[in-house]
């Protein structure tokens, strides 16, 4: 589904990602852990095609090289993103945006999802305009569901939200990635998490630890999370249990 080969990313003079390679097969959910500033959000943005970066390496999606493909083309190919901090777009209402997304992607009726994500009262407001942390995340999930992507990028869905909202967002993400009736098992995801709480809702297949722009460890996401909790991210640099090559 998604393959990244030796991806190096610079913003101005600063090198942010230093040769990332990974593969996320069809139907798998992978988790990305890492300290602040390690390049996690940049990796997601670069996969989506957002921002102004200097890039070398290749990004393949469904076998197609999308490294130079414009952002909107990637979205139409089936890549979707839920951002950690999305911009405020006061000019466009959430309801209006959902209509436009549905025109593009046609994911049937959304009423039940709007209900489940408690977004009714947000539909007439500008996107993210005076939204709380929870409202912003719920709105992101709703947009993703409307977009119906094949591959989902999710940046810290649990940050800045209370426990009740984590449940709502977690359930929505769960049903997006593994629909209850298993109609579509082919959806894949790369999810960034800091607290690991969202992992309770995901049947994640693999995890990575990103430190200083490099993947320093990979493996079972729960094991990785436990290690990080015990020894911190620095521990990943010294433990030596997994090779940096070929992760």
């Amino acid at each position: 589904m998604l393959e990244i080969i030796d991806l190096k990313v610079k913003a101005g003079q600063e090198t942010i990602l230093k040769g990332i390679s990974l593969k996320i097969p069809k139907g798998e959910t992978h988790i990305l852990l890492g300290p602040n500033g390690s390049g996690k959000t940049t990796l997601l943005k670069v996969i989506m095609g957002m921002g102004s970066f200097q890039i070398t390496g290749r990004i393949l999606f469904d076998g197609e090289d999308i490294t130079d493909l414009p952002l909107d083309e990637r979205a139409r190919r089936g890549i979707g993103i839920a951002m950690q901090k999305s911009p405020v777009v006061p000019e466009v209402t959430l309801g209006g945006l959902l209509e436009m997304i549905q025109e593009k992607h046609g994911n049937g009726k959304l009423e039940e999802r709007i209900e489940a994500l408690n977004c009714h009262y947000l539909l007439k407001r500008g996107v993210n305009e005076n939204f709380s942390g929870g409202e912003m995340k719920r709105s992101e999930m709703l947009q993703l569901i409307a977009q119906n992507p094949k591959f989902v990028l999710v940046d810290e869905p649990e940050s800045g939200v209370d426990l009740d909202n984590i449940v709502v967002i977690g359930e929505a993400l769960k049903s997006l990635l593994k629909p209850p009736r298993e109609i579509d098992k082919s959806r894949s995801a790369l999810v960034i998490t800091h607290t690991g709480r969202i992992m309770e809702y995901l049947n994640a297949d693999k995890g990575y630890v990103l430190v200083g722009g490099q993947i320093v460890c990979s493996g079972n996401p729960w094991d990785l999370f436990e290690e990080v909790n015990k020894h911190g991210f620095e521990g990943c640099l010294t433990c030596g249990r997994c090779s940096h090559e070929g992760v």
């Binding site: 414009p70 952002l71 909107d72 979707g80 777009v89 000019e91 466009v92 209006g96 593009k104 947009q143």
Partner: peptide, 21 residues
């Protein structure tokens, strides 16, 4: 860029913003 990440073309995204503005 945010609207484009939802699949809108660049001109559609700008037009939606201008119209809303």
């Amino acid at each position: 860029e945010y609207l484009m990440s939802r699949g809108l073309k660049q001109d559609e995204a700008v037009s939606a913003i201008l119209q809303g503005f």
